[in-house]
Amino acid sequence: MKLAGILLAVAGWLIPMVGLTVTSSNAARLTLCLLGIAVALFGILGVLNKAHQKHAIWKV
């Protein structure tokens, strides 16, 4: 799960980077950037955080 979270964060970065090379439209690049940020945030705050919360000190 932790690895999946980190991979999602990296994937979030790759989305706009690929977008930079495949399109020159600012609207498309903007959309891909926002999508990338959403994916990266989901990876960090959703997946990775959940993995750490699984064995949180207050749950034991």
Binding site: A9, V10, W13, I15, M17, L20
Partner: peptide
């Protein structure tokens, strides 16, 4: 777009 790429680089 350039600024958002900076943001996603920080996160990703």
């Amino acid at each position: 777009v350039a600024q958002l790429i900076g943001v996603v680089t920080l996160l990703g």
